[in-house]
Amino acid sequence: MVQEIAVNEMSRCQAIVAVEGLVKRFGHFTALNDINLSVTTGEKIVLCGPSGSGKSTLIRCINHIEKHDAGRIVVDGVELTDRMADINSVRREVGMVFQSFNLFPHLSVVENCMLAPMKVRGLSRAEAHERAIGVLRKVRIHDQATKYPGQLSGGQQQRVAIARALCMQPKIMLFDEPTSALDPEMVKEVLDTMVELARDGMTMVCVTHEMGFAREIADRVVFMDRGAIVEEADPETFFRAPSTERARDFLGQIIH
């Protein structure tokens, strides 16, 4: 028992994502400059900052959708290199949710959730189906399982996208502005799903400007500007008394 707690303590303190000296360029433009960030198991981080500051680029480097130019990214003990084997072993453990859902329009909701577990994790059709239904039930959308993405509302689609990622049983979830393409009345259902996920102990890195959400679940708010991390603080401190001028400007803008 004591031992178990000790092990849990250890794994909790261990960084599941370690980003060191990360540099990303697009041609001559430096989108990320010397980023250092570490995420411990179970931690929830909210990334925010003005448009073009590099938030999306940063989280897309973590699962190597964008290839970094310098620095190190280690995810769950595997360093991201050019080796496809490394990249895929990282991607298997990292779920991602996009602003524009990116569901597969030719597959039904449940098939969207079954594809990767079958093709990547090697589950049988029956196992994948059972897992998919279970996860869809969790995000409360199992009654739509046989529908196609085009038949669902934006909020429903985004919850399916979350379910699809969860069916891979990832160790960490990345969210890139999951609610900013949604009609206002659908934002809540998606945020509620994310809050539940956070309560279940999922490690999360979320790019979002939803301050209520950040206050509720974030352990840390990371503020970026012009390709650099400018400020890091717990949400209370960050929102009440940001220490940098740029963060103050930014907060002033999003509040209005």
Binding site: N63, N88, F98, A116, M168
Partner: peptide
């Protein structure tokens, strides 16, 4: 990108 994120070959 969705395929990449799901580690599909």
């Amino acid at each position: 990108e969705a395929c990449q994120a799901l580690a599909l070959s």
